[in-house]
Each structure stands twice: as structure tokens, then as C-alpha cells.
Amino acid sequence: MSALFALLMIIVLLLIPIIGTEVLGLNYVFGVVIPYAAIAMFLIGFVYRIVRWASSAVPFKITTTCGQQKSHPWIKSSSLEAPHNTWGVIGRMALEVLFFRSLFRNTKADLREGPKLVYGPSKWLWAAGLVFHWSFLIILLRHFRFFAEPAPFFVSGLQALDGFFQIGLPIIYLTNVAIVAAVTFLFLRRLYDPKLRYISLGSDYFALFLILSIAASGILMRYTGFRADIVDVKQLAMGLVSFHPVVPETIGVMFYIHLFFVAVLFGYFPFSKLMHMGGIFMSPTRNMANNNREERHVNPWNYPVKTHTYEEWEDEFRDVMKAAGMPLEKEK
């Protein structure tokens, strides 16, 4: 049901640029106004969410137990699993961001015949997630040939590597195939497992469908008859980044569909689970050093507690205690 709802949303979103540019002729709105609005929503929303997260209280130092904490010098500590300083934290965070290390530890629980509960490793989510994220990054970087003049140094290298096998013409990029395969897997995975299907929300499917739609519209534009004149596309893109927007007449509807889906992704980003892009850096189990034996973590909620030590207590009752013949720390 939630998957169908997400699909319906995508179809509505697909119709908007088609009607908007083909019927109403609002090319300027779809080429300039909506992309600017989406980028503004993305940047402002992103910063706002991060500041909100950063403002929440951190009452505890959350230590993860997957590595030996640093203690005595003769006990070997695990500097990446349980980092005790900032460099260790940076290392753990980098591995998490680049290689999804904690997802690699993913396990699955299955009820087999018997009934018997079986636990086992589950690497498919990690593998598909890694393929998808890296493909998306490479595709995004390749797109800088449209946003920068002259094209930055990394573009031609990535294009050569990505099209290494020179299959077809225009050359089929491996990341184009990989991203479609990986996102399709991530979608089918949610449908296949009843437990997963039960916890999947419309927004889970929507994000996958949206990314798949972006990939599909881009692939259609590159490899099939829905071609756009990319010189004009670059003129539009360069107009946007230099704040002198121009809308070339010849750009076709497939480009506007692609651009609108991308704009929706950017605008939707801060409101959605996609914010894990910034949120990963805010995860307490990843960004806090396991150094609570070295440094005391003070709960910011703590108010100054009124204490009454034994010395103060003895001062208060010294005369009475002395009269009763009780032992005293200080005689006077």
C-alpha cells in the first residue's frame, strides 16, 4: 500500500513538468525558478536541521563496546573501534562514511523449521548500499561538466574510468547500470521480506523511487531518442551558477523531467530520512571518543548539587560529639 502511494506520488511529480512545459510553456519556471527554490530549501533546511540536532542535550558519553577501550598501557586498545582521541574518532567516522562499517556488521534473524531461531551475517544491504552511494557520488561528480567551465580535472578521469569498457555509443557508464541495479535491489528487498515490508513506510519507497526516476530520466536522455542538446543544457546550468539565468528554447521535455526530479530531491532532502547525509556526523556512537576513564563527561543538565561533607558535619556537631565521647577526625 505504502509502495503504491509512493509510486502515485512519483507519477504526479512526473506529470507536473510535462504539463508545465509542454502545455503551459512555463519553461522559465521549471528551468530557473524551481531549481533555485530547491537549492535554497536544501541549503537552509540542511543547516537548520544540523543546528537543531547540535542544540539537543548530550547527557551521557555513549561508549560502544565493540572494541577494547584505552586503559593500561599493557592492554592493547582498539583505536578505531573505541577511539580515545579526536584522530581516532575521525578515522572511525571516515570508515563509517566511506565504507559503512557498522552496516557491514549487520546480522539477520530467521525463524527456521523446528521452530528454530537462526542468526547469520547479512551483507546484501551493505553491498547494495555501498554500490548505490558510490555510484551516486560518481554520477554527481561527472555532472560537473555541466556546472563548471572549463570542466574540472576529475571529470574526464571519472568518465574514462566509468566508461572503461567502451560498450555502446554513447559509452555506457558502469555507474549508470550499477545505480539502477542497486536501487532496484534495495526496493525489492523491502518488498521481499515480510518483516521489512511491515516496517517500510511510504517515505522509504518514495526516496528510492525518486532516485530511480532521476536515474531513468537521465539514462533515457543519454542513450535513447529523448536526447537533449547538451550545449544548451550547459548554457542553462552555467546561467544558474553565475546568477544570469537563460533558458534556451530547444531544451526538450525529458530534460525538464530530469531537472524537476532533481529539484524535488534537493527540496525534499532536509525534510526526509535523506538527512542521514548530515546526520551520520551527528551520531553519538560514532562521533564521541571512548575516553570516559580519562575525561569526566559532565551532563549539561546538572545543576550545582548542594552537598554536606563529613568534615562539614563534624564541624557542625563537634561540641556535642566531644561531650558524648565520640571519636573525632579533628580534635579542636
Partner: peptide, 10 residues
Amino acid sequence: YAVAGGKTGE
């Protein structure tokens, strides 16, 4: 990059 490169409208 556009500001530094300066070739936006060409």
C-alpha cells in the same frame, strides 16, 4: 569555480 574561472557565459 565560476567566479574564479570567469568563463560562465562563453
